[in-house]
């Protein structure tokens, strides 16, 4: 802009804006302001109109719920009752919901025999039956990779193999799920301590505390975490009504979730659903603090492989090779 035009520009504006801001409201400016207010209100109404389809419930009690560490047994009792009512309202089932704590002196670990797994994916579906994941959009915790014999490169694996019968010739199978790392990148990443390692080694998520930033999804080197992009849909007769607060209860929308070694089952002495269903016996699960447990046997006697060992995440999930 040249100096000449700038000067012209100056002349169009008053030398001081003081009078303007001190002058009282006139009828005309009042009417103008009124018209603007009407337009803004109409805009706001249109903007907010999609809310009528909101399918996620928000409650005041949930809003003010404290962090898991600060909950007294009485507070937890009330929370469990509230969630049961929500499940009844939204999914029409009576849930047996409990906050199942870890047992002192127990530390879980998992070993998976790559020599035996045939890639049948029964573990994937048994996991869904137990853990009440959303069926639409479908969420699965276990991803089975079909690998070329002669390579351990997961980037060349096939995630969507679908033959008549398994195993495919020349392939072997590597199921991957949460490795429950001892040095877990996901819990380090979480900005609000909504996910942590319990003393029995299970990495859990408090779905009532997670803010849904998905930093843990970015942090996990095993792609073990899932996010509820939509409100979970699951038919009433597909729901497992025995639920744990930090485990398989139906998740709200907008939070992260993951494999919890089926803590609802394993903290009560059962095997995880995936280990129980495996038809080839490839999956071994145990408390490694118990003398003579099968995991310790595997670690001492078999050729054991840790996925992405170089990252030093120290997983509680081991692969081994055995016919």
């Amino acid at each position: 802009m040249s100096d000449q035009s700038r000067k012209e520009h100056d002349q169009t504006e008053p030398a001081s804006l003081d009078d303007m801001t001190h002058e009282p409201l006139t009828r005309r400016s009042f009417l103008k302001a009124g018209a603007a207010a009407v337009a803004l209100s109409a805009g706001t109404a249109i903007t907010l109109s999609p809310l009528k389809d909101l399918d996620q419930h928000f409650s005041v009690n949930e809003f003010f719920q404290q962090h898991y560490e600060e909950l007294t047994p009485e507070m937890m009792e009330k929370i469990l009752e509230r969630i049961k009512q929500e499940i009844k309202r939204d999914y029409d089932v009576e849930a047996d919901l409990r906050d199942i704590k870890p047992t002192p002196g127990v530390e879980f670990a998992y070993a998976l025999n790559l020599g035996r797994c045939i890639g049948c994916r029964r573990c994937v579906y048994a996991c869904m039956d137990e853990n009440n994941q959303s069926r639409d959009p479908e969420i699965q915790y276990i991803r089975v990779l079909e690998m070329e014999k002669g390579s351990m490169d997961i980037e060349s694996s096939n995630h969507y193999y679908n033959p008549e019968t398994v195993p495919n010739k020349g392939k072997y199978y590597m199921p991957v799920q949460c490795h429950q790392c001892r040095n877990s990148p996901c819990t380090k990443a979480c900005p609000v301590k909504a996910t942590w390692r319990d003393p029995d080694g299970i990495v859990v998520v408090d779905y009532n505390w997670c803010i849904g930033c998905r930093y843990c999804l970015a942090a996990c080197p095993y792609w073990a975490r899932r996010f509820n992009f939509a409100t979970p849909k699951i038919a009433s007769n597909d729901i497992n009504t025995e639920m744990a607060y930090l485990g398989n209860r139906i998740r709200p929308r907008g939070v992260a979730e993951k494999c919890t070694f089926c803590l609802r089952r394993t903290r009560q002495g059962m095997l995880p659903a995936c280990a129980e269903v495996c038809p080839t016996g490839s999956r071994i699960f145990a408390n490694i603090l118990e003398p003579g447990n099968p995991i310790s046997y595997v670690l001492e006697n078999k050729r054991v492989y840790v996925l992405k060992e170089s990252l030093q995440t120290f997983p509680r999930f081991y692969y081994f090779f055995e016919k």
């Binding site: 928000f58 809003f63 962090h67 560490e69 380090k188 990443a189 979480c190 900005p191 609000v192 301590k193 909504a194 505390w209 997670c210 803010i211 849904g212 930033c213 998905r214 930093y215 996010f227 509820n228 992009f229 709200p252 929308r253 907008g254 939070v255 992260a256």
Partner: peptide, 29 residues
């Protein structure tokens, strides 16, 4: 950051003091 959150209603969990801040471990905090 806010529009990216799955639970914007829980934004207060991110607030120092009133929320539960994973500081200094989490780079996001």
């Amino acid at each position: 950051v806010n529009v990216d959150l799955g639970r914007p209603d829980r934004f207060w969990h991110l607030m120092p003091v009133i929320g539960k801040f994973n500081f200094p471990v989490s780079m996001l905090s």
